[in-house]
């Protein structure tokens, strides 16, 4: 069974699904997609990007220089897409199981009420 993905990793990969983004772009997109539930810290973001890059799930798309500062854009690789797909399936399966259990409990509650 595949290891569960950490929350920041999941949102970083999700933020990169539609287009390549730089650090702040990823932070903004993760916050937006999670309805403000996730605020990535810069330290956490770049540690995760380094790891994902080393694991081949994320690639460096291109570099820019803005106001003399280096800005790097990251994109998902095929491996990254597959990993995110696998995690999404796992989460759906877990949620589905939990929903079934909750429905059964409600049914049991009605029967014994």
């Amino acid at each position: 069974m595949a290891k569960a993905m950490r929350e920041p990793t999941f949102w970083i990969l999700t933020a990169l699904v539609d287009q390549a983004r730089h650090g702040y772009g990823i932070i903004q997109q993760a916050a937006s997609l999670s309805d403000g539930q996730v605020t990535l810290q810069a330290g956490t973001l770049y540690a995760a990007l380094d790891r994902l890059h080393a694991e081949g799930l994320v690639a460096i798309d291109h570099d820019e220089t803005v106001d003399g500062r280096p800005r790097r854009y990251y994109r998902l690789t095929r491996g990254g897409v597959a990993a995110l797909q696998e995690e999404t399936t796992r989460l759906e399966r877990n949620a589905s199981t939990a929903s079934r259990q909750l429905a059964a409990r409600r049914h049991l509650g009605e029967a014994t009420a």
Binding site: G23, I27, A42, Y46, V66, R71, R72
Partner: peptide, 14 residues
């Protein structure tokens, strides 16, 4: 190295 500058860019944008 480059990472310091990249982080500075992100932190400035934050």
């Amino acid at each position: 190295g480059r990472r310091r500058g990249e982080l500075a860019d992100t932190l400035l944008e934050v």
